[in-house]
Write a protein that binds this DNA or RNA. Structure first.
Lengths: 337, 337
DNA sequence: CTGTTAGCGCATTCAT
DNA sequence: ATGAATGCGCTAACAG
């Protein structure tokens, strides 16, 4: 059992082995200063001769940087968040930063703990999907006070942190256009199954729905998970509806809705049309295929990585990045054909 | 814009403010040594008077520990892994450790990079779901050489790392018992849709299937995702089968299978029975509900946290923990009724 | 271009 | 029980 054997070879060892000073080793390996090629290669050779690896903690203490970015998600069980985490990992990989992920488990105290964890570990940037529109404010402030912070997908108003997210209004407009082209909304009801209204994205989608479709529609609010979708479907059917167009604030909700409609004999798309939101994660497992608004996760990830890269050069102003989603046509709603 | 303002108050500040020495502050706050209550409370007061927070990096450098555990998953898009990450986060929360998650994106190089990241950041324990049964060996070795390492769900043979996982053989036995009670396996074929055979869990489930059901069954191998399930369903139908019992090596695969069967007119459970494996994540979104083997994720998480806690006290022997799964009855297979 | 020195913040000797 | 001194490993400032 070799567990726990800590690395012993230090910069001083390499310096001795190469016959130079520790400072020279540091410069040779980090390449920050010009130096004679012979000495450099001699140092490099000595280094991997001894199997040297720079001690990141020593470097962190000295430089107060860590080549680390932190991501805090409210919940990894939500496929949209885990997909976002996955994309972000992939996008960060080629950059010099390692992305570490922390799950706040939907809890404000855990969220704070995550922020503290990352601040204490001196991450260069903190990416945060806030749990709560209002109550996460202090957590976001805590973060912005000590590290470059980017809010993702959800926004806490009144904080001086960057924001990268999707244009939810535009998404709802895409849905409205699609629906009004293909459905007689006079004859059949349009129903909104919302998510968590304490999150900015939930709120924006609700407001977007109301702006685009006008008043007088059945609007249900719940949370961003499938169980709520199941309950919402029950509410809709119990309400006496046996047909209609259901707009869900997230794919997981839409999947729950479809599953329960199906169980109780409602046909999609014949009786009910169902439209989701997010377009990443497991949504394609639905049957029938889900029509949804796809968030531009690649562009969002790229925007974040760029922000992080720029911030190490110059301390710019606070950016608010809204990226445009697109409609992804599925079988759960009729196409114009 | 207050971003980037680093914390300035240090232990020396607190010491000055309380009129004691830095060493006393250290002892008062970490509580490792006995001391007079008056001085302690005076120090504590001074500390949160100044809003002092211990600098973790300084402490890490000194103690070579970090109150951090690292988790490396192959892929966060797989709902089983993200559910596992979520459970583990929750289980670690009450312990003194913060869990950081890293996604290897299914890639051996990324996996190595993750291991290095965590080792460099001096995590106290590294939990690893290896990408590949054989080729991850060097990565696991790298980890065990410098930190207490626990393999999760998948095992690389011949390494001296702990292992926590589910008893896949037993899971397959549960499936066999269920199937033979309810289906005439002489009249209709039993088909295995496997996952990645380069992972130990994929291999064990395949072997379990073969041991339990015997030879002569159609066995397909692919990967642990829904797309493969869709392709597998096509292969099965194209093979000429119009009925049978399909055992999938994972729920995501089963969902893909069901979705595609459904699309091509196969009825579940009337024509095809479908049984999954994992029982966590989004499997309950299936329609009909999926019969599956549920991995004991809570017990697995608990076992890991216990191992980590114990390892800080004593350096025990290498543990191999196999926990028993249970059958979760759904509508995708007939129950004895 | 390279070597010497100092100090990041802390926990731990050793001395009292 | 407390204080003074040391050094974890590294890089930045200063000399040369």
């Amino acid at each position: 059992m070799a567990q726990g054997t800590s690395r012993v070879v230090t910069m001083a060892d390499v310096a001795r082995h190469a016959g130079v000073s520790p400072a020279t080793v540091s410069r040779a390996l980090s390449g920050t200063r010009p130096m004679s090629p012979e000495i450099r290669s001699k140092v490099v050779e000595a280094a991997d001769d001894l199997g040297y690896r720079v001690n990141l903690v020593g470097r962190m203490l000295r430089q107060r940087r860590s080549t680390t970015a932190g991501l805090i998600v409210p919940d990894l069980d939500n496929p949209f968040f885990s997909a976002l985490a996955q994309h972000l990992s992939r996008t960060f990989a080629p950059s010099g930063h390692d992305l570490m992920i922390f799950s706040a488990d939907g809890d404000l105290d855990s969220e704070l703990r995550g922020v503290q964890s990352f601040v204490d570990r001196q991450v260069d940037a903190l990416i945060l999907i806030p749990c709560h529109e209002a109550e996460s404010a202090s957590n976001v402030s805590y973060a912005t006070d000590s590290v470059m912070t980017i809010q993702l997908d959800r926004r806490v108003p009144g904080t001086d942190a960057h924001f990268v997210g999707c244009d939810n209004s535009h998404g709802m407009r895409l849905i409205r256009d699609h629906v009004s082209e293909n459905v007689d909304t006079e004859a059949q009801p349009v129903i909104f199954v919302g998510g968590d209204e304490d999150s900015s994205s939930g709120k924006e989608r609700l407001e977007g729905f109301q702006r685009e479709f006008g008043p007088g529609h059945l609007v249900l609010s719940g949370s961003f998970d499938a169980k709520w979708g199941i309950r919402a479907a029950n509410e809709i059917l119990d309400h006496g509806h046996d047909a209609g167009t259901i707009v869900a604030a997230a794919d997981v909700i839409a999947l729950g809705v479809m599953s329960q409609l199906h169980s109780r004999g409602g046909r999609v798309p014949e009786d009910f049309r169902v439209i989701g939101f997010d377009g990443v994660g497991v949504f394609h497992l639905a049957h029938p295929t889900l029509t949804t608004v796809r968030q531009p996760v690649e562009a969002m990830s790229q925007a974040i990585v760029s922000l992080v890269a720029e911030s190490s050069e110059e301390r710019g102003k606070i950016e608010q990045v809204r990226l445009e989603p697109e409609l992804l046509m599925g079988e759960s709603s009729p196409s114009a054909a």
